[in-house]
Nucleic acid binder design. Structure first.
Lengths: 246, 246
DNA sequence: TTTATAGGATAGCTTTACTATTATAAACCA
DNA sequence: TGGTTTATAATAGTAAAGCTATCCTATAAA
């Protein structure tokens, strides 16, 4: 397993120069993850980063046009890495139920270190994604950025999960919406348990919290997706709540 | 119905001076909604707002300490308004299924104008909430802000929906998580249909999109919540996916 | 008539986000 | 060996953002 290279194909529009090829570039990546975690993306600046790595603002700008692109670059790295791990760990699973469970586990757990990239701390990056990842594609400029391929990694991951859903039930009407909902709900509930407990039912911390999130998502998936279309015909006044015609 | 006053109790820590009491204050509210919609919250500045309303930056600062607080103020206004409408329109409904459906409809549709507050355009504000509302509570400073009560309106709304869920099934283990998920999923799918279509299955626009979102959420709600705990015991290798012990 | 209060006018300060120029040292290559 | 890229450090500077402070005036409450 260690011999399989994690060939990360990142959108080269996101950086001016490949940061993984030089010493300074790797320092930028490694320390930006630490500093964004420490300060939050709003208070993180290239000035702070340059000071931290003993370089200058101008040098950082040679790698990334601005902090937003660096942020998107890191998120793409994360999403590609999650997708890669799901691919690797589900390719030999034939049972769609087990495959789905494995995927959910990987989405929730980020903590298995990737030996190929010692300069990225995946735990810290996961923390950033849980707290602020959603900001990447919620902005006024989303259309231009989407056009430039900024969100390809995230969309690919959702598509993979959507396909797993269709393998559970080929007639399910909302595979993509459900896939994006699962990923967001996973991150949100980890975040809520830590910061806004009234928005979640999960109270655990650490590994136990991750277990609880997976269990909850499994409950949502296996109750909604595999439910036969007419199972809820008996709910009063509820009509056409099952399949979408489109 | 027009005679019932919308008594909005907003957190007074959010503003230095009640903007609804003065002409300038109301202009600030009204025009900030328009400008945040036009520029996005990142590109919106007090300078632009002051120019728009023919006033000065310093005068705007007399009402709001910074644009983040103004943003939170507007979001609280929105969430309180949604909660008020749900309260008003469900108080006479005895059937929990119908009540839930009405609540979902109100969360998705923002477009019924509130005559009491002509200086807030609810449609435009809804647009802002769908696009950028999630940013309000995803930041490094969430704990302090939560401590100050910045998110009370949102938490109350979630609690209301969680109670509706419990009325559908008092044994359901995840009422709060499901409530926050429903609200986020509603907004996300409207946003995705407009900007990131690969993340949703819904393709409609305008009112038809809202209808599709409601229909999808109903599918999720009524398939899972009213599902008896052991209905999915037949899924292979799936154990304990129903109720949480806590 | 005094005294708050609202808000306009002006100025200025710090930080952020970037750009441009030059210098230097190592790497590569003929 | 010398010449030329390449990476990056050092320095300087600009424009906008995000505030803060002061002073002045109109109005309205006491």
């Amino acid at each position: 397993m260690n011999n399989i290279t994690f060939n990360l194909v990142l959108n080269n529009k996101l950086c001016q120069r490949d940061p993984l090829q030089t010493e300074l570039g790797r320092k930028i990546i490694q320390n930006s993850v630490q500093l964004i975690d420490r300060y939050g993306i709003d208070q993180f600046t290239f000035k702070k980063l340059a000071t931290e790595i003993g370089s200058t603002e101008a040098s950082v700008y040679r790698y990334f046009e601005n902090k937003h692109r660096l942020f998107i670059y890191l998120l793409n790295w994360y999403w590609e890495w999650v997708r890669f791990r799901i691919h690797l760990q589900t390719m030999n699973i034939v049972d769609p139920v087990e495959r789905m469970k494995k995927a959910l586990r990987i989405i929730v757990d980020s903590s298995k270190r990737n030996l190929e990239t010692p300069y990225i701390d995946e735990d810290v990056l996961h923390n950033i994604v849980v707290r602020e990842g959603i900001k990447a594609y919620h902005s006024k400029t989303v259309d231009e950025e989407n056009e430039e391929g900024y969100f390809l990694a995230y969309k690919s991951l959702c598509e993979m999960i959507a396909n797993f859903i269709l393998e559970l039930n080929p007639d399910f009407a909302y595979p993509r919406s459900f896939a994006s909902m699962l990923i967001e709900t996973a991150n949100n509930n980890i975040y809520f348990a830590q910061h806004l407990p009234r928005l979640t039912d999960l109270e655990a911390q650490g590994d136990a919290l991750n277990d609880a999130v997976v269990k909850m998502l499994e409950c949502f998936v296996f109750n909604i997706i595999n439910n036969p279309p007419d199972a809820n015909a008996d709910y009063r006044n509820t009509k056409n709540v099952n399949l979408q015609e489109n």
